[in-house]
Design a protein around this nucleic acid. Structure first.
Lengths: 348, 348
DNA sequence: TTGAAAGCGCTAACAA
DNA sequence: TTGTTAGCGCTTTCAA
């Protein structure tokens, strides 16, 4: 392992000088020629900082913890993690993800993260749930991801559900659908309300009047199929906006039973909760992607800005990379998420 | 933060003594009464080791890196990560997961992990792919997960595909199906061969003769639906073993178009690659679960045993927990995975 | 059976 | 502009 000592010896300067240079704190404090030489030798030797050693002095590890309860059971988490890791990596941080589903103890996992000195945390609850913050997180910078803070004190990143509903419905309008149904979720969720509002808004904007018989809310089980079946037979919609792919499945099943082809006889837009559905159904199923990557990305950026106590757009993004990579080409829609800024408890 | 110094002061012994006690190296070296007192005070103060500090002396961080390329794009990864994290956590290690899909540079991510001093690595390639090992991993203990080593030198954990095919087919036999079809994957994969062999074995064991017209292999696209459709019409199978849920979808679609009900008119067993499908189709679709959790779990245990240079069953599992938690209750089947032991390169 | 002391790689105050 | 020095919390000889 190459150390600063090694570089100091090779360049004939002191370790402190090397430290200054390696931390880019050399402007006006180290002669440019020397700094250049140090950098050169460091490069040559393949020097890498030892973050454990510096953390001992600075109490900063440049790591952030990502706490999620559904890594294994939903595919939601993947995109978020990827986004968070992407931003963290660009900003020189390491993301440490712990999942607390499947018998893992959340408290213990957070303790572990604290032992390893995580500088801040991302706390994710899938599907924009209202949540409280575990006590052990109270003294660190935290950003909620896809979750709403019950106390109203923690910054959070949430999907713009209204916009999602609006976008999806607008596409059906633009596709020429006359009777557009909404197959929603009958569990109380923030997403349901917002998307329904977006659905209504898009229809009204298009000069349609809202027909409540076209709006149904179902669970993900047997009766759902019946409800969708009735919707088909009684209301004869020609466009469906589905809360998620599980709901889209019922529309598919009903269409298949009636000999109708999706994409020709009826149109379907679903929210792409589970990428696999979209892959399988494609290209008939049009999907609106949830901005998981973006949420993770900006949540990480935000928590780093809190750790470093500087504004979000003052972060040291690498010159080679734009702060936000373009959306994945396969994701057909741009939908939005919102950063909700709040007063946050500072790290002690 | 509570340090050993603090405990030493409170108990009136030296830091070295505290260190011995906290590391359970006090047997016969510290008077039992003193050791007990130290432990008591440590407990009282809520002492936690500072792994960064000890790593500075020991060159061990008690972290292992999990490198996966498909966290975001497949739900496979979640179970593995959970299993690996579970074992790591039980054995006092921290799992650091990095995903290399979505524009992340694998080399850079591995460098980051090395900077943070990962003691060993899990290298995952989904769907049991044959793979080489990145150079930067060559000097650390590594276990491949769901992957086969091209060079034949790295230990790996792989699913028992034969057993999966056998189990799935056996269920259809037991359910009374007479004409059991296999809807496989036409891409060359280790899984395909093994499952097909298991399918044949189960049928032969049941005294059936293999009818090759009941075996089809399809991609996940348009022509697949036609192929399955033809299978339905020409061969009239009453049972389907599907390579994965994407293939099962085609069977569902065909059944729906013919007014047939899965679970009544025809039986389907699919391999549960994407949990969401199983949820949606449930309870009609019977699934055989891939042992992702188990693979992750034992891979982590194995790499830790390599790091600590002791046999797998000599590891310090916590007294409160059995080494291997029971399979998740929702997973209906026990399928097996195999640990393939090989000579491995030791950490320098 | 215990403690003093050195040092892991790095940072930061202070002196020169 | 540079170097000296003192530690961060811990482990590990080596002496006592």
């Amino acid at each position: 392992m190459v150390t600063m000592k090694e570089i100091a010896k090779r360049t004939g300067v002191s370790i402190s000088t090397v430290s200054l240079v390696m931390n880019h704190r050399d402007a006006g404090r180290v002669k440019p020629a020397i700094a250049a030489h140090v950098r050169e030798v460091a490069e040559e030797l393949g020097y890498q900082v030892n973050p454990m050693a510096s953390s001992l002095r600075t109490n900063r590890t440049r790591t952030i913890g990502f706490i999620s309860e559904e890594v294994a059971t939903t595919p939601y988490a993947g995109g978020m993690i990827l986004g968070a890791q992407s931003a963290a990596s660009q900003l020189g941080y390491l993301l440490i993800t712990v999942s607390t589903d499947g018998g893992m103890d959340e408290g213990e996992e957070i303790d572990a993260l604290n032992r390893y000195g995580a500088d801040g945390f991302l706390y994710a609850k899938m599907s924009n749930r209202v949540t409280g913050l575990p006590d052990r997180l109270k003294h660190s910078p935290v950003v909620l991801v896809d979750a709403t803070d019950a106390d109203g004190t923690i910054p959070s990143i949430e999907p713009d559900e209204y916009r999602i509903g609006y976008d999806a419905t607008k596409r059906l309008v633009d596709a020429g659908c006359e009777r557009i149904a909404y197959v929603g979720c009958s569990e109380p969720m923030i997403a349901q309300e917002g998307r329904l509002a977006g659905y209504r808004a898009a229809l009204e904007e298009a000069g349609r009047k809202i027909d409540d018989r076209l709006i149904i809310s179902v669970l993900n089980n047997g009766p759902a199929l019946e409800a969708v079946s009735d919707l088909f037979d009684w209301e004869r919609p020609d466009g469906f906006f589905c809360f998620n792919d599980a709901r889209a499945w019922y529309v598919y099943e009903c269409a298949a039973r009636r000999g109708l082809t999706i994409g020709r006889d009826v149109s379907v837009v679903g929210v792409d909760n589970h990428r696999v559905f979209a892959e399988t159904f494609s290209p008939q199923l049009t999907t609106v992607a949830l901005p998981h990557f973006e949420m993770g990305y900006w949540a990480a950026a935000k928590v780093i800005s809190m750790i470093e106590q500087r504004p979000l757009d003052d972060l040291q993004w690498p010159e080679t990379t734009a702060p936000m990579p373009p959306l994945d080409a396969e994701i057909p829609a741009k939908v939005h998420c919102t950063l909700i800024e709040k007063e946050s408890v500072r790290k002690a």
